[in-house]
Design a protein around this nucleic acid. Structure first.
Length: 505
RNA sequence: GCUCCGUUCGUAUAAUGGUUUAGUACGUCUGCCUUUCUAGCAGAAAAUAAGGGUUCGAUUCCCUUACGGAGUACCA
């Protein structure tokens, strides 16, 4: 076990990276760092039809924003490069040929339409079409196993489209190993002869994946559960090449918050939360998908909630910074069953990390997003944030929470005014105004002492005074301590707002 | 259909063949903050899918069923 730990995250650049993909990347990163290993990024762009412009940059940027960039990959420490499979095209051919020469793979000339027809026909008869020994030499399939070598040669030379299929054995039981799931037994009779090499000259995922993992000396393959059914093929491929297979760990899927199935892009739109780390504009349709970053989530939040989707530390600690996760992470603590995504819990994490942000950073971010704040001193904004932060989950909550620190209320909340503005309130506000005017050195403490003393000595109910005062100042029954508010907006502004309330009532 | 994987409060999960009246967090509900609150604090309700085994004893091990998920492409 002195082998170097090398893991890879190998997404396809077919669009923005889904949070499920981000979670896979995270677990790979965590595992690598925990074992002082290397986290490799490889771009699996063997399907030219699905290639999307900008997707690779998106992936890189997303990892960067989350705080776990790759150690090795396109344009970075390229010791095992290139890292885009499209740039490794020339490498794969020799390996398929090796397999063919050794009788472990064969040419197949069936067209997609023909195969489709076979599958349909089998289905109609209630049978399952499997492209393996059950069918491959029964005559209705065209491949180098049924053709003579001369016929095969002729077809290839004359330019017929062909694929290369893996020859899966009959009547064997495969013993697969997965770190998370343990031992899995597979009957090879249920396995298809998978396509290894496509007619367009590109390898399929399966071949490219195994060859690249081998060439890049990957020690552990940590990927989503959707790959579990392919594991049998991958094991056989390693064996066919005579290579030692890496260890595998298949991560549980991330499920929709409600209803059935895997979390997808539409769920986010429907239920009002992002499914992507960063916002994304589709280059073709121009449709915009929202991102965690743009929605006001902190990267710490995303990392923390993603880590808990399918993993737990075995203790009751829930708040983990990236470094803490590196220490605590263990593949043995990863769950087997799919994890339902919970947007509420995610918000709770964000609320937590909000409290840890510095007031100056928050003030900057708040000022940037709120045009009304353009001319307001950042120091003042920071003080306001200090007062309201504990009830904020996102930076864009601040305006709702604190707008009255910057602009006087234009109207009073209807329900609140019914509750607060009653007979005699006018007189109370008049007195309050005089009281405030009389205070020389306006501090929250002086205001409180003066006003409370007056309330007690006149035996008025606190509510009768404090509620209308709050309403006059804020426009609603919300916000932090009334005296803090008065101190912040100042004596003159406080008086103005009280006057305003008296007039409007 | 077939193959594989899974199943603890609504959700994420902890725990263990007996110490469990199954722990924690989010959410929900209630109360308290001497009477703002979306925050905080305190408390409450809430789960081992079902049926069979194995065992002195199972939520924990095995089997069956049910349910859920994934795969079943010349996509990854």
């Amino acid at each position: 076990m002195s082998k170097n730990i090398r893991v890879r995250f190998a997404p396809s650049p077919t669009g923005p990276l889904h949070i499920g993909g981000v979670r896979t990347a995270l677990f790979n990163y965590l595992f690598a760092k925990k074992h002082k290993g290397t986290f490799v990024l490889r771009i699996e762009d063997t399907d030219q039809k699905r290639y999307v412009e900008g997707a690779e940059d998106y992936i890189v940027n997303a990892l960067e924003w989350c705080g776990f960039p790759f150690d090795e990959g396109p344009g970075k420490n390229e010791q095992f490069g290139p890292y885009r499979q499209s740039e490794r095209k020339h490498l794969y051919k020799q390996y398929v040929e090796q397999l063919i020469n050794e009788g472990k793979a064969y040419y197949a000339f069936d067209t997609a339409e023909q195969l489709d027809a076979h599958r349909k026909q089998y289905e109609a008869e209630g049978k399952t079409f499997i492209y393996n020994w059950h069918n491959r030499d029964k005559g209705h399939l065209v491949n180098s196993l049924t053709l003579t070598p001369e016929e095969t040669q002729h077809k290839i030379v004359s330019g017929d489209d062909y694929v290369v299929r893996f020859l899966s054995p009959k009547d064997e039981t495969l013993h697969l190993k997965d770190i998370i799931r343990g031992d899995i037994k597979i009957d090879t009779n249920t396995l298809d002869d998978k396509v290894l090499f496509k007619a367009d000259g590109m390898p399929t995922y399966h071949l490219a994946n195994i060859v690249d993992d081998y060439l890049m000396e990957i020690s552990h393959v940590i990927r989503g559960e959707e790959w579990l059914p392919s594991l049998a093929l991958h094991f056989q491929l390693y064996a066919a090449f005579g290579w030692e297979a890496p260890e595998f760990a298949h991560l549980p899927l991330i499920l929709k918050p409600t209803g059935k199935g895997k979390l997808n892009k539409r769920d986010g739109d429907k239920l009002g939360f992002p499914v992507f780390p960063l916002a994304w504009t589709d280059p073709k349709t121009k449709a915009i998908s929202r991102g965690y970053k743009e929605d006001g989530y902190f990267p710490e939040t995303v990392v923390n909630f993603l880590a808990f989707l399918g993993w737990n530390p075995g203790t009751e600690q829930e708040i983990f910074a990236l470094d803490d996760l590196v220490n605590a992470f263990d593949l043995n603590n990863v769950n087997k069953s799919g994890a339902r995504f919970d947007p509420d819990k995610t918000k709770w994490f964000n609320h937590h990390y909000m409290q840890e942000q510095s007031h100056t950073d928050l003030a900057k971010a708040f000022k940037n997003m709120q045009p009304e704040l353009a001319n307001i001193d950042e120091g003042y904004i920071a003080m306001v944030i200090d007062l309201v932060k504990e009830r904020a989950t996102f930076v864009n909550d601040f305006w709702n929470l604190a707008n009255y620190f910057f602009v006087a209320p234009r109207q009073y909340d209807e329900k609140a005014s019914k509750k607060a503005f009653k007979d005699g309130t006018k007189e109370i506000l008049e007195t309050l105004k005089e009281l405030v005017e009389s205070i020389e050195n306006v501090t929250a403490e002086n205001l409180q002492n003066t006003i409370k003393a007056w309330i007690t000595s006149n035996e008025i109910g606190f509510g009768k005074v404090m509620m209308p005062l709050r309403l006059a100042l804020v426009g609603a029954l919300q916000g932090p301590d009334v005296f803090d508010i008065m101190f912040m907006i100042g004596k003159n502004e406080s008086i103005k707002r009280i006057e305003n309330a008296i007039e409007t009532m």
